[in-house]
Nucleic acid binder design. Structure first.
Length: 573
RNA sequence: CGGGGCGUAGCGCAGCCCGGUAGCGCGCCUGCUUUGGGAGCAGGAUGUCGCAGGUUCAAAUCCUGCCGCCCCGACCA
């Protein structure tokens, strides 16, 4: 396209409310504009990239046997009441009423709608399995939208849903999608990692997140330095038993004593006051699990991972106990809780395994206990992995050291099981004529977020560096001086030649100085720039520069088409 | 929802403390010059100073209320 005719408003100055590189560059490159908090318009350049990503996803979905549908965004409350999420989804679900006072919501995801569709049409095992997907705008009323399209309220998402008659079938579908996702993110040219994840409010038995590695990422991920284990920090399993140097002699159990610790509440304070190390202290944390108190014990230098605890308990809502509940179970204010005599269900983390003669709250205001020992002083019947792993911890699979990285979650695959099909009665008749509940899976990719993640990974000081498969245009033609008839003519010739062969080309025919054109071409990240300048043109030559590597080639006009064809073909391999 | 900040030309900002004709840079329009990394000169257009109310002879500036946006936290596929 001719630049002079394009709606491509690039800006030199960075908008003051942009924080991340991708947000700044998407605005500067004229890809997006904000309408209101967390809601963005895509301009032509941005939308071209979106469509490229969508089409790659479409191809791989079709290869994986999924069929495209298009589901409503406005959904009736009844459906959500049936699944139970009208109550549980919370304020992220934007609800409203129509003129008849009927209740609706904007779809933040589409399990209910798709389950409703399939339960009406699928009656027999002969019709299964079926996998459907759509690319839709979702709305989630995020508490705090940020980072441009990375975490916004209205966003484009590809979501696929599989329905199977058998567990084995569901597994196969999950594997198919997992493989398709790997192909998608590979084709998009992203450095990513698939990690084990918690399934969160979508529910279901297990899931993987696809994380694009980026220092600006909102999520922490953990991976093994030796084997291929990788997990979300929330999910990452800690090796059982605290790593302890081998002990030669049995520990002498010392008599328990109570010490006065006025206003000493945190582990840090306790350690300083009693001159002990955090590894000699047991942290006693009281939670409110669906209204009942639950006590979790962990070594003083570790942190409780509430998601692990929640999954262990299988409760609906888990939060830190309020002061009155703490007083109720410990008889003391916050800061002095301990295991001895506490009135609640108690679970200890594996990190307590080798501890003896440790420090603990006394369940009495301003007192702690020294030389507490399990068995003698208290018993805990339940033991589980409750703590956050830390960098350097041992891998639960191979025992090597774990490493940390930051990532942007761009895709998530869930094995849902029967959570929705059960609640919404999506059933079929099996070969024996018996009614069975369908087994579901769901698989999402955030489109806009994927684009932003790509920019986070592919940019320099001058702007975006698009990987060829998602570049909005492949080639930019820059005649250094558009007033010069010979340059303009050469540019026009190349433009026609490349366009007619199916390449996507921007011809910068603006009456701007060369510097401006170069800056814009760099900013919007076009992979190949063909510069037509006076000296080279006098010899019938032009210059081709690669945006990413900066590699430069000067070659005769008539070889340009071949060069670009070859370069694009090579990239696609 | 708690804490903090901001709202003045299309964009980025100054002016506000200490009330007195609304400014700068970029962009935009016109002309001339210039033309390989965001040009120079000359001329020009553009504002209900977020909204509402109050104080005052006089409010961008002081006071009250509201709205919007951003950041930190809590929360969350």
């Amino acid at each position: 396209m001719r630049y002079s005719e394009m709606f491509l408003p690039t800006v030199r100055e960075v908008p003051s409310d942009a924080e991340t590189v991708s947000h700044k560059l998407m605005i500067r490159a004229g890809m997006i504009r904000k309408l209101t908090s967390g809601i963005y318009s895509y301009l032509p350049l941005g939308y071209r990239v979106i469509r490229k990503v969508e089409n790659i996803i479409r191809e791989e979905m079709h290869n994986a046997g999924a069929q495209e549908v298009f589901l409503p965004m406005v959904q009736p409350a009844e459906l959500w009441q049936e699944s139970g999420r009208w109550v549980h989804y919370g304020k992220e679900l934007l609800r409203f009423t129509d003129r008849h006072d009927r209740e609706y919501c904007l779809g933040p995801t589409h399990e209910e709608v798709i389950t409703d569709l399939v339960r009406h049409e699928v009656k027999s095992y002969r019709q299964l399995p079926v996998t459907l997907y759509q690319i839709q705008t979702k709305f989630r009323d995020e508490i705090r939208p940020r980072f441009g399209v990375m975490r916004c309220r209205e966003f484009g998402m590809k979501d696929a849903y599989s329905f199977d008659a058998t567990e084995e079938g569901a597994e196969i579908n999950y594997e198919k999608m997992y493989a398709a996702y790997n192909r998608i993110f590979m084709r998009l040219g992203l450095k990513y990692r698939a990690v084990e994840a918690d399934s969160g409010s979508i529910g279901g038995s297990y899931s993987h997140e696809f994380m694009v590695i980026a220092s600006s990422g909102e999520d922490a991920l953990v991976f093994c330095s030796a084997c291929d284990y990788a997990a979300n920090l929330e999910k990452a399993g800690a090796a059982t038993g605290a790593p302890k140097p081998e002990k030669t002699e049995p520990v002498k159990i010392l008599p328990r004593t109570e010490v006065h610790t006025p206003d000493i509440k945190t582990i840090e304070d306790v350690c300083a006051f009693l001159n002990v190390l955090p590894v000699q202290v047991v942290k006693t944390v009281i939670f409110n699990a669906d209204g009942s108190p639950v006590v979790a014990l962990v070594r003083g230098d570790e942190e409780i991972n509430p998601i692990k605890l929640k999954n262990y308990l299988g409760c609906e809502v888990l939060e830190l106990a309020k002061d009155d509940m703490i007083r109720e179970v410990t008889g003391a204010p916050r800061g002095f809780a301990g295991a001895i005599g506490i009135k609640a269900r108690m679970i200890e983390d594996y990190s307590l395994a080798n501890m003896s003669n440790f420090v603990m709250g006394a369940n009495r205001e301003d007192y702690h206990l020294l030389n507490v020992n399990r068995g003698r002083d208290f018993e805990v019947s339940e033991c589980a992995d409750l703590r956050f792993v830390r960098e350097g911890d041992t891998c639960i699979h191979c025992g090597s050291a774990l490493k940390f990285a930051r990532g942007i979650e761009v895709g998530h695959v869930f094995k849902l099981g029967t959570k929705y099909s059960q609640a919404m009665k999506a059933v079929y008749l099996d070969a024996n004529g018996r009614e069975q509940v369908m087994i579901m899976g769901c698989y999402g990719i955030g489109i806009g977020r994927t684009v932003a993640a790509s920019i986070e990974q592919n940019h320099d000081d001058n702007g975006i560096i698009w990987p060829l498969p998602i570049a909005p245009y492949q080639v930019a033609i820059v005649p250094v001086n558009s007033d010069d008839a010979r340059m303009a003519q050469a540019a026009e010739g190349l433009y026609q030649a490349l366009s007619s062969r199916g390449f996507e080309v921007i011809m910068d025919d603006r009456n701007e100085r060369a510097g401006v054109k170069f800056k814009d071409a760099d900013l919007i990240g076009i992979p190949y720039r063909i510069t037509i300048g006076p000296k080279n043109l006098a010899e019938g030559k032009v210059e081709i520069r690669e945006r990413g590597s900066g590699a430069m080639n000067v070659l005769p006009l008539e070889q340009v088409v071949n060069f670009i064809t070859g370069a694009v073909r090579k990239e696609n391999e």
